[in-house]
Design a protein around this nucleic acid. Sequence first.
DNA 1: CGGAGGCTTGAGCCCTTTCAATGTCTGTGG
DNA 2: CCACAGACATTGAAAGGGCTCAAGCCTCCG
Lengths: 240, 240
Amino acid sequence: MSDAISTEGFWASLAAKNALSQDDLEALLSLPVRRRNLGAGAAVARSNLPAKSCSFLLSGFAYASKLLRDGARQIVSVHVPGDFVTLSHVFEAPNVDEIRMLTPGTVASVAAAALHHVLASHPSIQTALWRQTAIDASIFSEWLAAIGRRDAQSRVAHLLCEFAVRLRAVGLTNGSAFDLPMTQAQLADATGLTAVHVNRVLNALRQTGLVATDKRTIAINDWPGLVALADFDSAYLGMA
Amino acid sequence: MSDAISTEGFWASLAAKNALSQDDLEALLSLPVRRRNLGAGAAVARSNLPAKSCSFLLSGFAYASKLLRDGARQIVSVHVPGDFVTLSHVFEAPNVDEIRMLTPGTVASVAAAALHHVLASHPSIQTALWRQTAIDASIFSEWLAAIGRRDAQSRVAHLLCEFAVRLRAVGLTNGSAFDLPMTQAQLADATGLTAVHVNRVLNALRQTGLVATDKRTIAINDWPGLVALADFDSAYLGMA
DNA sequence: CGGAGGCTTGAGCCCTTTCAATGTCTGTGG
DNA sequence: CCACAGACATTGAAAGGGCTCAAGCCTCCG
């Protein structure tokens, strides 16, 4: 299985999106990177380990979640190939309980110390990473509004819209269809619903002709309709 | 009315918390700052204005919220004196619809251009701001878990615990009591509930002896009990 | 004194959950 | 090739937590 992207491609994309200089790019390319092939369900990082490193996805999907005392789980972010996964881990203790792979995939990691060394002499790179953290925060706040104030159909529709846009941005869509490798239970943990209700919501979305599903593939048949239902505006993703 | 803190005190606190050098601190102190006295309800920043600046609270409370198409509001963050308010606004479009004062207060602002100029030559300062953005993201994700997976009592209790800790950190508590200048409708918008239900929840918290309220003052009578109900762990605030 | 915003309370409803069972798919081993 | 197990999806019925609607009250302030 070849990775969706290479380490070099990842850095080049970061450089392009943030207008970094050639010198900056070369500094990034010189960073020692550790690659790991992980299976579905494997932990990308454990909260008990203080492994201060910054990692990103070369292939596969991952999620970060918080566990509550009563056993409930809240997935707070989902990561697609080309995303940073543990960007904020260069700082103190992680703020989530688990980061796991949704699918088999490859994770690349840079030790925090090495990264800090480069950042100290490359302010533009640090700005790029800071900006990425700001985008992560922006996504969190959008999810907050979705979970806090939207009904179940709108929440699920919003999640689907977000993934459609994010996956298109990294070329992981076939026309209007894309792969969303999450079980309904995981979708429930991401939207603050129950698996049973996610099932019913997906049923409703299918019956109203907005989407079609086949295994874990989502086909959006009525993008304007789905956007309207979700009250979706992609600005918060910080892309264009 | 004198401000709770001064601009100089704000920068000094930032420097202390991030182990910045004397040179860094002096660079911060040399930044041109615009101070504004705002009344309750006044807009700190408007989403339509591309006023790229970074602002922080010298006194008073503020909140940031998103508005949904159907008129619903979700408050995504509340800011206390000493907090940055529009830190991520140094980047692109703001990710919230409104930022308003909860009380009269003073806001200090630094133009993004001036800030960027300093950051380019002071990597440690940029790291400090980046770290603050990471903490903001951490708070978002904690709220996400609270709203997504906790019941109403636990959500409200969690919010009260958070404010108790944050206000104690800036010396704005009297013993176990503190001022939380939010109406029940605003608490509802922050917790994803309705004002009516927040009222009932507060009633229950009072009747079980966990808290007492007087106007907008909250007295926590049973801190361990409230923490247990909220499943609260202050680690996500990135303080100690 | 009157008005406005905020707080409180009651009653009924509804969206979502809970509980429980059945169906489907996939990989595995006999 | 089939039996089996396990994970996931689906469906029904009933319960419940929070919402909606509505009214009354309190307090501050002009």
